[in-house]
Amino acid sequence: MPSDGDARLAGVSAAGTDLGASVAGDVVIDIRNLSLTFQTADTPVHALSDIDLQVNAGEFVSLIGPSGCGKTTLMRIVADLEQPTGGTALVNGMTPQEARRKRAYGYVFQAPALYPWRNVLGNVTLPHEIFGLSKDEREQKAKRYLELVGLAGFEKKFPWQLSGGMQQRVSIARALSFDPAILLMDEPFGALDEITRDRMNEELLSIWRKTRKTVIFVTHSIDEAVLLSTRIVVMSARPGRIIDVIDSTLPPDRSIETRESPAALALAHRVREGLKAGHSYD
């Protein structure tokens, strides 16, 4: 990383004030009494019920739970991709819709969702193209973030020429490219093999250390949640609700090996207990 890039990435709050970023410690995402019921043909499905969650600036919060517990739905509500049927969600003090209009967050999907007719650079410059930035500026920014995710030199490649892990890194660079203060990640590494996933976890840790963005991270994996998070939210299914909220006791400086430390094992144990409790409920 060139030092000027580092400085710019670290200066999120300076660069990001117009995006609604706040000083560390402030509540960035404020969810109260949130519920969502899908009306299906026979019975209503309670996807989420009475969710209360506050996320502070600079936190890395993982949502973990079994399939169908509504963790993705919860994040989609924050992103204004889904509408709640009860309660409120505020992002930077605004409704999710206003926040989306102000481009407050970058979203990383389960699949890379790259546009196959665009090369790597074209995919990463896409958001800025939509925001109307000049070609030079958006390419300069895109290159900086491609370097951050370790893909410098791959600008001209097309998605099919990259491995699954590399494609997902492109999609992370794309989400970071316009420097949103909030990063919403929906099982971004779920489709990757264990080895690639470990490497991606380490890279994400280092990106988070450099940028100090507020991250909400949906995952199935206890290991992943323990390693990455400052806070772990354990959820259960039908109705989707929060079982336990666990503050991480791990030091801020972490690597893959941190997972085997006694503190990490204790955390993992508590997460597992929470998941079990949620499961026995139904």
Binding site: A79, L81, Y105, G106, Y107, F109, A113, Y115, I130
Partner: peptide, 27 residues
């Protein structure tokens, strides 16, 4: 275009015209 490709455009608050030119037409 699949749901994720369309959702992506929505997260950028892209207008119909932009979705057409940058996603639907090339697809």
């Amino acid at each position: 275009p699949d749901v994720l490709q369309l959702d992506l455009m929505r997260t950028y608050s892209a207008g119909d015209w932009q979705v057409f030119w940058k996603l639907r037409l090339p697809a």
